Amino acid sequence: MKNEVIAVIGWITLVQGVLGAGGQIFGDKAWGLLQKWWEIPTAGYVVLALAGLVLAVWGEGAKKRAKA
């Protein structure tokens, strides 16, 4: 159960980071929900995307190891 929660949080963080960075790079403002509450620089969104990727990979790998 814990691994599934970590994976979901990772995927959500990854998507929000990619949307925010993509919006600031290819548009005039960030996309996603975080831009409604905070002003995050592009580098911050990239860090969020990388952190989300790490959590998602770790959570998915832990789920597979738990099933085996």
Results as ranks from 00 to 15, higher is better:
G61M: 04
A43Q: 11
A68F: 07
L48K: 03
G22V: 05
T13C: 12
I25W: 11
A51I: 10
T13L: 08
G20M: 03
A62K: 03
L33N: 07
G23T: 00
A43I: 15
E60T: 13
L33A: 10
A43N: 09
Q35V: 15
V8T: 14
L53F: 14
G23W: 07
R65I: 04
Q35S: 14
A49C: 00
V46R: 00
F26T: 08
V54E: 03
L48I: 10
V18F: 05
G59L: 09
G44K: 02
E60A: 12
T13A: 12
L55E: 02
T13M: 11
W11Q: 08
G17E: 02
G27F: 04
A43R: 13
F26A: 14
E4H: 12
A68K: 10
A7Y: 10
A56L: 03
K64G: 05
L19M: 10
A62D: 06
V8Q: 15
Q35K: 11
I6W: 06
A49F: 07
V54F: 10
A68L: 06
G32D: 06
A49V: 06
K29F: 15
K64L: 05
L19G: 04
G59W: 07
F26S: 10
G61H: 06
I25R: 02
V47H: 06
V5T: 13
M1R: 11
N3G: 11
G32P: 00
L33T: 09
L53D: 08
I25H: 10
G44C: 00
V18H: 05
V18A: 09
A21H: 04
